[in-house]
Amino acid sequence: MQNIKNNMQKNTKIKKPIDGRTQGGESWLYSEEVKEHFFNPRNFMRHGEEETFKFNGMGRAGSPACGDEMVIWIQVDKKTDPSSAKATEGEERIKDVRWRTFGCGSAIASTSALSEMLIEDGGLAIDDALKIKPQDIIERLGSLPDRKVHCSVLGDKAFQAAANDYFRNTGQHDRVIIAGSKVIDKELKITDKNIEEAVLEGVSNLEELQKKLKIEKINKDSIPEIEELIKFYNEKYFD
C-alpha cells in the first residue's frame, strides 16, 4: 500500500509528462474535416501522372526527424508583361496543383486542404498564396492535435519552395523568399540549401548548377563558395 502511495506521489511530481497526444494530454481526436481529407485527398499526384501533368514550379520539403517528405507541383499563369515588377490584378494565379507525400495522416489532410485553398475560385494569386499560414490550414481543417501541427508546416514549406522554383523558372530571382538557410549569392538569392538539393538531383559542377537554377550569369565573387559547396555536398552524399 505504501508503495502504491509513493508511486502516486512520484507521478504527480512530473510536471509535463510526455504523451503521444497533446502537450496537455487533452483531445487527440481528428476532426471530421481532417478524416475526410485523409480518406479522400484532393489534388493528389497519382502514380504516373507526373509524366503528363503540366507545371512550372516544383518544391520539396522534409523533416529529418520523422522521415517525412513532401513534394508539390504548381502551374501558375504567367504574367503578360514579364518585365513589370508586379503582376496586375488577376495575373499569376495558381491554376493547378498536385502533391505527394511520405508523411502521416495529418500531413495528407493538411496538404489536401492547402491544395484546395490554392486553386479554388479561379486560383489564388501567388503572392496571396504565400501569405497562407499553417493557422489558416488548421482553421480550415477544424483543428489538429497540437503534436500534429508541425505536419501541416510540411505542405506549407513545400509550397514556398515550389513558388521559389516558379520565380526562378520565370527569371524573377528577386522574388525568391529565403527562410532557414544561408544565402551564398545575395543578388540571385542562392542558398546552401539550393546547392544541396541540386547536388542531390545530380549536379556536380558550376555549369550544371546554373542550368538547374536557371541562372544565366553568376556573380564572380560568389563562385568560389558555390564551387566549394558543390564539392562538399557531392563528397557528403556520393563518396
Binding site: 523533416s63 529529418p64 526527424a65 499560414k133 499553417p134 493557422q135 501541427v149 508541425h150 508546416v153 506549407d156 514549406k157 527562410a179 532557414g180
Partner: peptide, 10 residues
C-alpha cells in the same frame, strides 16, 4: 530543436 520550422511558421 530539429529545425522543423514550425515555430516561425506559426
Amino acid at each position: 530543436c530539429i529545425g522543423c520550422g514550425t515555430c516561425p511558421a506559426l
